[in-house]
Amino acid sequence: MNPIVLDARNLHRIYETKAGQTHALRGVTLSVRQGEFVAIMGPSGSGKSTLMNTLGCLDTPTSGQYFLEGVDIAAYTADELADVRAHRLGFVFQSFNLLPRATVLRNVMLPLIYTDIPVREREARALRALQGVDLQEDYYDHRSNELSGGQMQRVAIARALVNDPALILADEPTGNLDTATGDMVLDTFERLRSEGRTIVLITHEPGVAAHADRTVHIRDGRLWDAATGLFLDAVVAPDVPGGPQRVFLSADGAVAAPARGDVADRRVIDAVPSVAQVGVEGGPGVLGAVQVDAPVGVRPIAPRGGDVR
């Protein structure tokens, strides 16, 4: 079983604005195993960018815990977060964000200037990363503003790979590309996944999300089950890549994040390993313990293509 790379527990993010408080994340619990390609899908304003920024250590949660490779970084200082970004994370943006006047090679090497990696090793790393994204060698000394959109995004992916990150975060990476070019970029992601990379991709397009091993939906700052329309407390990584993810049901309202293996009297699907999804009937606070023989007010929902007991 691959280890858990990303383990976010009950993340809340509240923005203080002049107009008042904005509750952008309302208790998100989510885990991703090494080697998974996960899509986070949601409409605009759903909190997916906030989630992305939090997972990307660009923002810190107002409350909750975030373990990256087992280390809780929710309380890290700005400098410590920068260090995590420099060494353990790779970003791919919708608008590529390359330095226009710098060469392809220089762009790919850029993250390494914020690490201790010796200068002579950087170029070798950048070349390896570029080979991983199928960009022709002729382009390596081109300025990045001389490239096409698809090429630029592949350079950006190479840049995200260059520090050998634990997690690659891609924010609408195909948003600025036409379908054909976008598919090429998605193929690149799929190949990286097959090489064992862990990828979390944010999108609002189902077609893009379909390339991922699994999709996590977010709405109004909470994880959400698209089939039933019910909010979920937690989405836990499957035991094997490609296997069914396990979800924890939610009563509406704030609930403590269940830990993995937490059976107790809560609606724990861990106790029902073969159940892929469970929905909850009833309003806020009516949730009882989940049992195999579903109690009153709780009934298992047929997963798409899965078996239900």
Binding site: A78, A82, D83, R85, L99, L110, P111, Y114, T115
Partner: peptide, 16 residues
């Protein structure tokens, strides 16, 4: 500003 944001996302600290 965007470049600064990019550099920060790539691991630049405030003092960098």
């Amino acid at each position: 500003i965007r470049e600064i944001g990019l550099r920060m996302s790539l691991g630049a600290r405030g003092r960098d």
